[in-house]
C-alpha cells in the first residue's frame, strides 16, 4: 500500500490543495456570474480529489497535461494561484500575457503541458512528451487527464495505441463524471467502465473511486511505479460526478435536481475530512488552519488578478513564430 507511506505533512498537503481547489472554484463561479471574469470556466467542484490525489505524486522530472476540470494539477505543478487567477480575468499577468487561457496553460519548465480546446486533442501530444522522456533516458512520466467524453474520440484510440506499442511512460487518467456536456454515459458508450478499453491496447486498466483522494493516490502510485520501471502506460479511470453544468454559463436544466444534489453527499472533501479526523491524522483545528491558509492564497490571487492590467494591444501579433 502506497498510502501507508504518507506522512502527516503529505496529508496536510492533500487537504490543503483539495480545499484550495474547491474554494477557488466557488469564488471563480461567483465572480464569473458578476461579470468579472473572461475565461469560460468549467467547474471542478466534486471532482477535486482526482487531480489532487494523483498530481501530488508528480515530481520535477514528471509532466502533466491537465484537462478542463483538473485544476489541482496546475497548482501542484507550480503554477501559482496568482497567474492562474489573472489568466481567468484575462490580464497581462496571466499565462502568456493573455494569449492563452489558464485552463490550457503550458510551461514545460514546470512540467505543465499546454492543453487543447479540442477534447482529446492533447492526448497525442502527451504521447510525444512520453516519447521525449524515453529518448532523454529520464525516469519521468507524463500524466494526461481527460474526461469520459474524450474516450469517444479517435485521438484517444491513436494515443493509447501508440503509447502501448512503444511502451511509453504515459498515465492516461480519465475523470469519469458520466457526462459529456449534455450527454449521459449511456449515450456515449455501450460499456459500463472506461477502464476495460485498456484491454484493447494491451495495457492495464484500473477503475477506482475518484471521490476518495487516497484511492486515487494508491492507484496512481502503482501506475507511476510501473511506468518508471519501463512497464509502459496505464489507463486509470476515476469515477466521480459533475456537480454543476458543463460550463459556468450552463444552467444544467436538463438534469434531475434531486439526483445532482445527491452527488453532493459523496463529497471528496467531506470524505477525506472524515478519514483524517476518525484516524486522528489531523485535528479539527488543523483543518481550520489549513483552510484559512488556502483561503488566503486564493483571496490574494483574486486581488492580484483584479489589480493587474489588461494586456497591451501592441503584443497581439508578437511571438507567433520564434
Amino acid at each position: 500500500m502506497y498510502v501507508e507511506k504518507l506522512n502527516p505533512k503529505d496529508y496536510e498537503k492533500l487537504y490543503y490543495y483539495l480545499y484550495l481547489t474547491r474554494y477557488a472554484d466557488e469564488l471563480i463561479c461567483k465572480n464569473y456570474k458578476q461579470g468579472m471574469l473572461q475565461e469560460s470556466h468549467h467547474s471542478c467542484q466534486g471532482e477535486e480529489a482526482i487531480a489532487v490525489g494523483s498530481g501530488i505524486l508528480l515530481g520535477k522530472d514528471d509532466y502533466v497535461c491537465p484537462s478542463l476540470r483538473a485544476r489541482g494539477y496546475f497548482y501542484l505543478k507550480g503554477a501559482t494561484l496568482k497567474e492562474m487567477m489573472a489568466g481567468m480575468y484575462g490580464k497581462v499577468t496571466g499565462p502568456s500575457r493573455g494569449k492563452n487561457t489558464s485552463h490550457h496553460m503550458g510551461d514545460m519548465d514546470r512540467g505543465i503541458v499546454c492543453g487543447s480546446g479540442i477534447i482529446g486533442g492533447a492526448l497525442p501530444v502527451a504521447v510525444g512528451v512520453g516519447l521525449g522522456i524515453k529518448k532523454r533516458g529520464s525516469k519521468g512520466v507524463v500524466l494526461v487527464s481527460f474526461g469520459d467524453g474524450s474516450t469517444s474520440r479517435g485521438d484517444f484510440h491513436e494515443a493509447m495505441n501508440l503509447a502501448a506499442v512503444w511502451k511509453l511512460p504515459v498515465l492516461f487518467v480519465c475523470e469519469n463524471n458520466r457526462m459529456a456536456m449534455g450527454n449521459t454515459i449511456e449515450g456515449e458508450m455501450a460499456i459500463d467502465r472506461v477502464a476495460i478499453r485498456a484491454d484493447a491496447y494491451g495495457m492495464p486498466g484500473v477503475t477506482a473511486n475518484g471521490n476518495d483522494v487516497l484511492a486515487v493516490y494508491e492507484a496512481t502510485a502503482a501506475a507511476i511505479e510501473r511506468a518508471r520501471k519501463g512497464g509502459g502506460p496505464t489507463l486509470l479511470e476515476f469515477t466521480t460526478h459533475r456537480w454543476t453544468g458543463h460550463g459556468v454559463k450552463d444552467a444544467d436544466a436538463y438534469r434531475d435536481r434531486a439526483v445532482v444534489e445527491s452527488y453532493k453527499q459523496d463529497c471528496p472533501l467531506d470524505n477525506f475530512r472524515k478519514v483524517l479526523l476518525a484516524k486522528g491524522i489531523l485535528k479539527k483545528r488543523d483543518l481550520d488552519r489549513i483552510e484559512k491558509a488556502a483561503m488566503k492564497e486564493v483571496d490574494d490571487a483574486v486581488e492580484y488578478a483584479v489589480q493587474s492590467d489588461h494586456p497591451p494591444v501592441d503584443i497581439v501579433a508578437t511571438n507567433v513564430y520564434v
Binding site: 503541458v113 501530444v125 510525444g128 485521438d155
Partner: peptide, 17 residues
C-alpha cells in the same frame, strides 16, 4: 501504426521536449 493524428501530435510533444 497507421495513425496520422498520433504522428503529428506525437511530433508536437517531442518537439516540446
Amino acid at each position: 501504426p497507421l495513425s496520422e493524428s498520433a504522428i503529428v501530435g506525437c511530433s508536437v510533444g517531442a518537439a516540446m521536449m
